[in-house]
Design a protein around this nucleic acid. Structure first.
Lengths: 147, 147
DNA sequence: TATTGTTATACTCTATAACTATA
DNA sequence: TATAGTTATAGAGTATAACAATA
């Protein structure tokens, strides 16, 4: 794993158009979040994609819907789930109403790992330095932007 | 390419700890930004990694430093740059002071593509819906968090 | 016929380790 | 000896297309 560290110049020039300032800052945030998530995933013994998959399995979920949530082609999920299932983190259950459908369910160990992952996320997060007041501001902005 | 679309439940329960609310929202933002960046990269004919590489080449830069900025092992850069160089988007120049060192320089076409990419980023961005006042707020928060 | 999931295929990205050439 | 970049290798993630089972 490569550790997070200050990388490319990301200081924004106040004279730049506001949209461009935000773009550059988000590029930088993106890089740091990517590194942080990779770090967290590795800490619990997962690849980033496996960690994201677990994240989307708060509730049992058919494979096709997992693919939608992951925003990837459905054919990929087979392999990712194969690797998770080998480690007994998830099981494929038959949907009794539609025998084509497989529903993914976290095992107890899978749930434990998912929770541990979520508990680790705030620590060392690129935005961890914000004060509670700033975090509330950020939350409100994100709620507004993401619907 | 898989199009961005509302994915997993990300609504935050105001009773949750603030840190967890922010975590969940950032997970969702992360997914949408990933999809958006992939979309922009594809629109200019690049993979996400190639796009990120171009982004970090505002100025000529030795390969090792590019690896640091990309937060990946230096050995990867060889292949990524091979593919960019095949398309004449970047060239490897010799550093006259240290003959071990190769400096990456964008070609004119590489600069053009990089600029086009940056111009496309704001359009359809997950945070594009924010008002200018909200964008200023967000910029200030990011500047505070990222140093 | 249409849909769910799988398989086959090809390519990109990624880390590790060993190597070359410089320093 | 140490550093910059490359090569070899292996594994994971990804999209496309063709397929099987079921609806």
């Amino acid at each position: 794993m490569i550790d997070a560290q200050p990388s490319t110049p990301h200081q924004v020039d106040p004279d730049m158009p506001l949209g461009k300032q935000v773009s550059l800052l988000l590029f930088e945030l993106n890089g740091r979040m990517r590194a942080h998530m990779e770090h967290v995933a590795e800490a619990v013994g997962l690849t980033p994609t496996q960690a994201r998959t677990l994240h989307h399995l708060a509730e049992p979920c058919p494979m096709g819907e997992v693919a939608e949530r992951m925003r990837c082609d459905a054919s990929n999920i087979t392999g990712v789930v194969d690797r998770l299932a080998e480690r007994d983190l998830v099981v494929r259950e038959q949907d009794p109403d539609d025998r084509r459908r497989r529903v993914l369910v976290l095992t107890e160990e899978g749930q434990r790992l998912r929770q541990e992952m979520h508990e680790r996320i705030p620590h060392g997060h690129p935005l961890a330095g914000l004060t509670p007041a700033q975090q509330r501001q950020l939350r409100d902005l994100l709620v507004a932007a993401l619907d």
